Amino acid sequence: MGIQGLTKLLGDAAPGCMKEQKFENYFGRKIAVDASMHIYAFLVVVGRQGDQMLTSETGEVTSHLQGMFFRTVRMLEAGMKPVFVFEGKAPELKREELAKRSNRREDANTELEAAKEAGNAEDVEKYSKRTVRVTREHNEECKRLLRLMGVPVLEAPSEAEAQCAQLCKDGLVYGISTEDMDSLTFGTPKLIRHLMAPSSQKPLAMEFDHELVLKELELTEDQFIDLCILCGCDYTAKISGIGAVRALSLIKKHGSIEGVLAALDSKKYQIPEPFPYQEARRLFKEPDVVKGDQIPQLKWTSPDTEGLIDFLVKEKTFAEDRIRKAVERINAAKGKASQGRLESFFGPAKVVSSTMGKRKEVPVAAKGKKGSSGAAPKKGKLGGMGKKK
């Protein structure tokens, strides 16, 4: 789910924290990719016709593999160095959100069957997308694919976006590629959206700068986390009737969720029960991640051509000529990437705001006190890499 309404709020109240970037501007950059989130997106859209997904000749779903292979090829061709981070065990605090998602999938399955009986093609496609679930098999196949492509894989001990954020905070990558805005709540210095969108859409990446988020909103790190919890996150229900703009106003005025709750009219606003905002706050500040000094060296190697042919062509019935040509493009691009990044090669990025245009005025009030940095994260489990640089 991410953080409800945060993208629009930043576009209106902190437009200077966002900038559009051309895809090729990330030449030479190491990018952490939230793998599980992107796999879900591939299963939803790649090769879909109605409720039919892309499959091999034997009927196995291959949408995730096609999306992962060709989008990663595009990144490698552009001289990027992606490292894919896979989800670990979900935090206990997320159990309720996961249960809600499971219920929504069950409801979607019911609606899907009704749409099929009614012959409503539009509803069939809509509800079939809502039934998509990333399985362990999808993840394992994508890990195998990426390793054959010579791309490093990291298995997070818990939330993938938290581990991506830690890689960025430790300076091991430039930024993280994800669509989930809670990466900013986990403190990633650079969040990059739309980086793995299909090339046919010719999208511009949207880069968010965490430091500028705090500066433009005039919040401390602790206050920003409290803002995100009030907006609505994966770890607790939100206070009904409080949207992103109202949440920002309240945090600016009262400094913290504790201050907001003390001043809130309980007759007007329904506070959820339970409301584990303190646990959610702690999870954002002290997530279960592997820190930089424990992370082995990230290694990018040449793709295993014959291994890819065996997996994608012989097992999954991909077209051999397309796979071989894609590998040739990767190898041709490796020479460019080895030259390193020249900052002066690219022009300045364009700063943009949301479609609302002008920055909205928000009430200004006393700021809260800056909180402590929190305890050290726990150790996690690593996969598919060598030793630290």
Score class of each variant (00 low, 15 high):
Asp321Asn: 11
Lys215Asn: 07
Pro274Ala: 09
Tyr127Val: 04
Arg136Lys: 14
Ala366Gln: 14
Ala35Gln: 07
Glu117Cys: 07
Met181Trp: 01
Phe27Ala: 08
Gly255Val: 08
Glu57Phe: 11
Ile257Ala: 09
Arg147Tyr: 05
Glu24Tyr: 02
Leu248Ala: 08
Thr236His: 01
Asp170Leu: 03
Ala376Glu: 14
Ala262Arg: 10
Glu207Cys: 10
Lys389Trp: 07
Asp170His: 04
Gln270Ala: 10
His210Ile: 00
Ala375Tyr: 00
Glu218Thr: 11
Glu258Ser: 15
Gln66Val: 11
Lys22Tyr: 08
Gly384Trp: 05
Lys358Ala: 14
Ile257Leu: 08
Gln4Asp: 11
Leu342Ile: 02
Arg74Phe: 08
Lys378Leu: 10
Val73Gln: 11
Arg147Trp: 07
Asp226Ala: 10
Ile257Asp: 07
Ile257Pro: 06
Gly88Asp: 05
Val290Pro: 05
Val134His: 12
Lys19Leu: 08
Ser36Leu: 06
Glu343Trp: 04
Thr236Pro: 02
Lys202Leu: 00
Gly380Arg: 04
Phe27Ile: 06
Lys325Met: 12
Gly374Ala: 08
Lys169Pro: 07
Glu111Cys: 08
Gly67Arg: 10
Gly386Met: 08
Arg130Asn: 02
Val44Gly: 07
Leu172Asn: 04
Lys325Arg: 14
Arg341Phe: 11
Val260Lys: 09
Leu10Gly: 04
Met68Ala: 15
His210Cys: 10
Arg74Tyr: 06
Lys367Trp: 04
Pro274Phe: 03
Cys164Lys: 07
Glu125Lys: 15
Ala115His: 06
Asn331Arg: 11
Ala319Glu: 12
Ala263Ser: 14
Cys168Asp: 02
Arg281Ala: 13
His38Phe: 12
Val173His: 03
Arg341Val: 00
Gly59Tyr: 02
Gly335Ile: 03
Thr178Leu: 09
Phe346Tyr: 13
Arg136Thr: 13
Glu320Ala: 11
Leu261Met: 13
Arg105Pro: 05
Cys168Val: 10
Glu106Gly: 04
Leu227Pro: 01
Leu204Asn: 14
Pro152Thr: 04
Pro152His: 05
Glu179Ala: 11
Ala32Pro: 02
Ala99Gln: 01
Ser240Met: 09
Ser200Trp: 05
Arg101Tyr: 02
Glu117His: 05
Arg136Ile: 13
Lys334Leu: 09
Val45Tyr: 13
Arg147Asn: 14
Lys253Pro: 09
Lys94Trp: 04
Pro157Ala: 01
Gly11His: 02
Pro189Lys: 12
Leu148Cys: 08
Asp310Glu: 15
Cys168Pro: 02
Glu221Lys: 12
Pro152Arg: 02
His38Asp: 10
Lys238Gly: 14
Ala160Arg: 01
Glu60Asp: 15
Leu204Phe: 13
Lys370Glu: 15
Asn103Asp: 05
Val85Thr: 03
Lys126Asn: 12
Glu361Asn: 01
Leu227Thr: 00
Phe70Pro: 10
Phe224Arg: 04
Val364Phe: 09
Glu87Thr: 01
Cys17Pro: 03
Ala376Ser: 13
Gly383His: 09
Leu230Tyr: 08
Glu77Val: 00
Lys129Val: 03
Glu122Gly: 14
Ser240Tyr: 06
Pro82Met: 00
Glu221Ile: 01
Gln270Phe: 02
Ala263Trp: 04
Ala349His: 08
Lys334His: 00
Pro91Met: 04
Phe275Lys: 10
Pro287Thr: 05
Ala366Lys: 15
His64Ile: 00
Ala365Arg: 12
Lys143Tyr: 02
Ser344Trp: 01
Ala375Ile: 01
Phe42Thr: 00
Val153Arg: 07
Gln163Trp: 08
